[in-house]
Simulated scan of single mutants.
Amino acid sequence: MRHRIAAVLLGITAASSCALFAQQTQTVGPLPQRDVFVVGPDTSVGDPLRDFKPTRVEYTQDPMDIGGKRELVRMLLMEQGFAHRSLPLGAPGLVLHANGRLTVDNDSLKKRMFKDGMSAAAGDRIMVTDINILGDRIDIDINGGPYLSHRFLRHISINDVPLAGDGVMGERPTGTRITLLFEGKTPRVSAAEVKALLEPLLDFGLKTSEQAYADTLPDPIRNAILEHEVLVGMNRRMVLASLGQPDSKLRERAAESSDGEVFEEWIYGKTPQSIRFVRFRGDRVVLMKLAALGKPIEVHDKEELAGYRDPALTHEVSLGDAKAGSEETESKPKGPSLRLPSERPADQTAPTPAKPKADKVAVNDAPHLQ
């Protein structure tokens, strides 16, 4: 009897569970499916050539000469700007026709950047690190160029262990190359014209606050900042406008100082490149050392600004009261009074007339003094 009752209860429970599941299925409907986002060449990188407009720059057709090459390298090398659009990483770079379009289409460029990466995204700061002027083109390396720099330590190994990477694993180039291609021979273009021709890809016209500040300085200081030099006597803002943020900073006590003065030193560059050590005392540069590979260390510790001081940091302070008879006292308004203009206060007396000075007489001409 007990077994029959248990079997009946079990059947009722199973039937109610099936009915409840069927009711939920009918009311709720199909289960929602989650969206899946797959990263691929079409989704990882946007359209790098969107709104690409060729330039219309007029330039001379005279062939490039030695003087033009030197001027172009001097004015463009180490020049800083911003990327208008994403730039691919590594070789072969980009080929831009002068006043024309790129030789690569949008889809191919997206696949390259998805595979190799980007050297600079849109809006990132870039730097011209090398310029090579050829017969019909100008090769401009950005952020170190598309190829890994050569290191002789890669050819040396100890116990089959290389002293440096082999350039295949763990080491990759950091930049790209933009080739400006001309029809025929390379003309004698100026640095401003090259910047205008590169405008669809790069922008050299935007100014930071430091660059705008440099335009307000005298010509010798502004020229030094444009050539990325540091002069003894510059303040921190001038150094930032010239070299940007330092790679590292150091604060120590000067060994030659008797009172233990703390100085701050900014370090620019890393070996094997040239390294600059800029020492500040307060807000001014008091020492600059330049250490170049294979050359003696250059030390600059003499004032190089000819006593120039930033007018914004110069204030004139006058101590004491204004001098009698000065414009300040004469222009000061007098308080109200009931006295007539001819009357004087009780504490003031009429000025006594000055005694007439006796004429000087020679001793020989005064008989009473003989």
Rank of each mutant, 00 (worst) to 15 (best):
G167S: 13
E183P: 15
L198F: 13
S190P: 09
L181W: 02
I178W: 03
L197E: 09
R177H: 02
K195W: 01
V189D: 05
D166T: 12
V194I: 14
T174D: 06
T174K: 15
V194Q: 08
T186M: 07
K185V: 08
R172F: 11
R177C: 03
G165D: 14
L180S: 05
A192T: 13
P187F: 02
G170P: 09
K195Q: 14
R172P: 05
L181P: 01
A164Q: 10
T176D: 03
K185Y: 04
R188C: 11
T179R: 11
V194C: 06
G167P: 01
D166C: 07
K195M: 06
V189H: 02
R172T: 12
R177P: 04
T186G: 09
G165T: 08
G175S: 02
E193T: 00
R172I: 12
G165S: 15
K185C: 05
A196M: 11
R188S: 13
T176S: 12
P173Q: 03
K185N: 06
T176L: 02
G165R: 15
S190Y: 00
K185T: 10
A196L: 10
G170H: 11
A196G: 09
G170Q: 10
G175M: 00
P173W: 02
L181Q: 09
E183L: 12
V168L: 11
M169T: 11
G184I: 01
G184W: 02
R177F: 00
T176N: 07
A192G: 11
L181N: 10
F182S: 09
T179I: 06
A196T: 04
A164R: 14
E193D: 11
V189P: 10
G167L: 12
V189C: 05
I178G: 06
L180D: 02
E193Q: 15
D166L: 13
G165P: 15
G167C: 15
F182T: 04
G165F: 05
L181R: 09
A196F: 00
P187I: 03
G167E: 08
V189L: 02
T174P: 13
P187Q: 04
A191P: 00
E183C: 06
R188L: 07
T176H: 08
A164G: 10
M169L: 09
E193I: 00
I178D: 04
E183G: 15
A191G: 15
A164C: 15
G170M: 07
V189Y: 02
L181M: 11
V168A: 09
L198K: 07
G175V: 00
V194H: 07
A192S: 14
F182H: 08
A192H: 14
P173H: 03
R172S: 09
P173N: 06
L180N: 08
P187R: 04
G170K: 11
K195R: 14
S190T: 00
T186H: 06
E171D: 08
R172A: 13
G165N: 14
G175P: 13
T186E: 05
R188Y: 05
T186Q: 08
I178V: 13
R188W: 05
T179D: 01
L197S: 13
G175W: 01
A192I: 04
S190D: 07
L198G: 08
L197Y: 02
K185S: 09
G184S: 10
